[in-house]
Design a protein around this nucleic acid. Sequence first.
DNA 1: CAGAAATGTCAAGTTTACTTTCCATATTTT
DNA 2: AAAATATGGAAAGTAAACTTGACATTTCTG
Lengths: 66, 66
Amino acid sequence: MKNRLEELRKSRGIRQEELAEALEVSRQTIGSLENGRYNPSILLAFKIAKYFDMSIEDIFIYEEEE
Amino acid sequence: MKNRLEELRKSRGIRQEELAEALEVSRQTIGSLENGRYNPSILLAFKIAKYFDMSIEDIFIYEEEE
DNA sequence: CAGAAATGTCAAGTTTACTTTCCATATTTT
DNA sequence: AAAATATGGAAAGTAAACTTGACATTTCTG
C-alpha cells in the first residue's frame, strides 16, 4: 500500500512532529508511515483522513497481492 | 468502530466461511469482526470494501475517542 | 425430533502496528 | 562554520490483529 502522507503534510506546511501531535501518535509513527515501513491501523487511517478532510481511499492507495 | 459486515454478508446470502475464503482470512476473523471483538487491519478493510464494491467509510463507521 | 450445518467463543501462538529511547544525517538559521 | 531544528531509522518492548484448533450453542433441514 502506498500513501500520500508526506505530500499532504508538506502541502500543509507542518512538521512530522506537529502532525503526530494532532493525531496523537509518535513522530516515529508518522515517519514510518511516510517511508512505508508499515501500514496504519484502520483507526489511525480514519484519524488521518479526518485530519486532511479526505477519504481513506484518497490518501491510501491499495495495491493487490499484499 | 462499528461495521455493517454481518448485514452485508447476509444480504449476499453467504456464510462466514465463504466470505472468509474470498477474503483469504479465517472464519474466526470474520466472526470476530462481525461481533466487534477487534477491528480489521487497513489491508483487510480494503479487501472487504472491494469485495462488497463499497467504500471503507460506507462499511466501517468511525466513532471518535477510540 | 435427530442430525447436520452454521455460528460463538476461548486459548495459545505469530505477526504487525505502535511506543520509547537513542543516535546519525540532513536542513535551516544565526 | 557552528548551532539549532527536522528527519531517518534501528532496537526492544507492548498491544492488537490474525491463525489454528477445539468445543459449545444455535439454526436449518430431513
